[in-house]
Design a protein around this nucleic acid. Structure first.
Lengths: 144, 144
DNA sequence: AGATCGCGTGGATGACATCGACCGGGCGCT
DNA sequence: AGCGCCCGGTCGATGTCATCCACGCGATCT
């Protein structure tokens, strides 16, 4: 993981569709060597996958909210229960009073309410506190 | 934006590297037609860009925290101030008592503390409340 | 009915990923 | 120090793929 690897990852984050030749020129390597480096980055798990970034509003998920989930039991084994709710984009165990923090995207606030209802139905959940996002300044890739 | 478009986006989210031929076979189209559909999805902004998903821990951002930022002024014009802090991955205006919610990734908790210090230095910021993530259940693409 | 347009197919072509042969410099071993 | 090994690079060949074009079909509007 040297400077060249970091430069490659940074450029791939911006555009994963460019040719290995272009990528190689940018970092001062041949296409073959570039290909080999990127292959190893994938192999090591530094690059998890190549994907497309989608506009949430364009696919019917214009409402974004973060929900603090309070519980009266250990939630460490409840991964599947949260995964089963399709509208949940992220779920994290957190330090502090609530025990789980989830990121939810829905089309409408009515659907958000329905997600909260389903969250209450999860074993051990004793309460929720939803924070609705009014405007997103930015969402950007990891710094390197 | 019909069922085929949704299927294309879903498959591209999982693997943006596959060939248009494979993609086309999966949805029942020729490579040419598939290419044209994806081109239009990009043009319309449904697909914002193609990128790689990176393991945060592998690039020195093993600590994740969400920070509620309280303020005593209107924060709607402070986008640049938050953008200037590289460790901030997302920044949102929120409804509720705090006025901005940011997602922060750092290598260590010391660096997290430094980010909080820099947040205090932003005009109008009157307080912060950081929630440290202990374990991430999952982070996944948008549902379709 | 006829013209038009959006959306598809199939084939040609040039670019690109991918692989293999080869090379050189750093490093440990004797 | 000299030797050999291995990692990581260049270069060139080859098959696959993206990309473009000519054309066909059906729905819509006049």
């Amino acid at each position: 993981m040297d400077d060249i690897d970091r430069a490659l990852v940074r450029r791939l984050q911006q555009d994963a569709g460019q040719s290995y030749a272009a990528l190689g020129t940018a970092v001062g390597l041949s296409a073959g060597a570039t290909h080999e480096r990127v292959r190893k980055l994938r192999e090591r798990g530094v690059i998890r996958r190549t994907t497309v970034e989608v506009d949430p509003a364009a696919v019917g998920s214009g409402v974004l909210a973060y929900v603090m989930v309070d519980s009266n039991a250990w939630m460490g084994e409840s991964k599947e229960a949260f995964e089963a709710i399709a509208e949940i984009q992220e779920a994290h165990i957190i330090a502090g009073s609530a025990s789980v923090l989830v990121k939810v995207r829905t089309a409408t606030t009515e659907q958000l309410q329905d997600v909260l209802r389903r969250l209450y139905a999860v074993d051990g959940v004793s309460g929720t506190h939803a924070t609705v996002v009014l405007d997103t300044f930015f969402e950007r890739p990891l710094p390197l």
